[in-house]
Design a binder for these strands. Structure first.
Lengths: 249, 249
DNA sequence: CAAAACCCTGAAGCCACGGTTGAGGCTGGG
DNA sequence: CCCAGCCTCAACCGTGGCTTCAGGGTTTTG
């Protein structure tokens, strides 16, 4: 989410005049703090390192302090995204940046990869309105999905908030809704998923509850593989059933 | 070491009847040589390393030699491609593979999509032996899958033959078998798929039975979309369930 | 103006990833 | 029975991507 923090940082005194602060150059510490919201593994030393690797070239004060323009920050942001979402090595990112400000290339696939991850980011919190805007789905359908518990918002401060699995679920459901498949029919899918979850829980459960952090991590990764394989298998089984349907007529 | 060598292969693997040799299982050296054409940085040790990292799991001879099925070679090929072309780290490739390359960027997803197509080309007919060589799965697991009716061969002239959905199902199951999920547990997946099929049948059934050829064709295409959306939705529901599992600790 | 907060460079260190190498020993096809 | 080919296990290695530390300069703030 692009909340683009125009927020006055604690030590922020450069915004004393109500002027648009986002025009001002930032010190390295300020940049780290801002980007820290989106990327938890950012650090001052890392930013310096990236400069060392010729990925950035901020202006300097006469005294030698780095000064980051708004553009620099954006550049850095996209570097970090490519790292995190597309797993690109710096060497490649450098080229990618040099080759014009190309953007949004494999972005779709990458975001999918993240969205489908079991290891939940917990990051996203959407209001109903945002969910509607984001998916282009009517509030009535969402209501329907909630009634049948396909979507399970959480109440925070009396407001329902949705997360990113909810969003993906809504998107997928809207596809089905086009064909008239709605809440009551979807219930069968939910129970199917619930049962699969129980099955997988039985397999990795022990490792998951292990106190050993390594074992736990491994269990989570196995869980990802299992979930994928499971969905895959179910899909193939469905395809076979459907072929029988279309074949024998 | 694996004590249970799954090779009571009933039939001699000699292709006395001049069968296409590319159906046969290969030794590691042969695999390296073949893939060496496309990937210069392949080596025997690298292939072994990838196995060590759980990216491959070829069958073994009773003596311990690795035997690579056609499917294994393809899997390896796509591993190498993801490394070379998409710079993905092995950790990510592992997941991507488990997902059965459900979405393949960059174009050619043809082979899988064909296999996943509802519109069945009844073409493929595999014997048990071919199925084993092709998928690299032990005959015992296949037997297990048959017992639980995940795989449904047809008897022709007293010989059981499998089709390509069976093959894909076996492949997906082998992924799960690695974690000890076998026949009895898989039954829940089959019934889930069956129910989804019933659901979709209700939606497109009328069109499917239409005498109007156009309407029929359209129904089939809708069915594909529906199947995809359905699987997708079930997967997301599963992911959400699993996140709850990993989250609350 | 001085202390406090922040920033600078360069060199060294660290850890994970993705393999390779080598010793010592089986396998299996001709 | 021979010998190329394969096996495991453990040690080793280069690179990438940072972090840490020492020693010292710059800016802000009160």
């Amino acid at each position: 989410m692009e909340a683009s923090v125009p927020t006055p940082t604690p030590f922020d005194r450069e915004t004393a005049d109500g002027a648009p602060s986002n025009r001002k150059a930032l010190t390295i510490g300020a940049v780290a703090k801002i980007l820290g919201r989106e990327f938890e593994d950012i650090s001052i030393s890392k930013i310096r390192y990236l400069e060392d690797q010729k990925l950035l070239a901020p202006r300097r004060t006469p005294g030698g302090y780095r000064l980051y323009s708004q553009a620099d920050v954006e550049r850095l942001r996209s570097i970090l995204r490519m790292q995190r979402d597309e797993f690109l090595p710096l060497r490649v990112i450098r080229q990618e940046l040099a080759a014009g400000a190309r953007q949004e290339r494999g972005g779709e696939a990458a975001s999918l990869r993240r969205a489908a991850s079991v290891e939940g980011g917990k990051g996203t919190r959407l209001t109903l309105q945002e969910l509607v805007d984001d998916t282009g789905v009517g509030a009535d359908l969402i209501k329907d999905l909630e009634d049948w518990r396909l979507v399970q918002p959480v109440a925070v401060d009396g407001v329902k908030v949705y997360d990113d699995t909810d969003r993906e679920i809504v998107k997928a459901s809207s596809e089905l809704a086009r064909f008239g498949v709605r809440g009551r029919n979807l219930k069968v899918l939910r129970t199917a998923a619930d049962r699969e979850a129980v099955l997988l829980e039985a397999v990795v459960g022990p490792g998951l509850r292990s106190t050993n952090q390594n074992a736990r991590q491994e269990a989570i990764e196995n869980l990802e593989s299992l979930a994928a394989a499971c969905s895959n298998l179910t899909h193939m089984l469905l395809v076979r059933d459907l072929r029988k349907l279309t074949g024998e007529d």
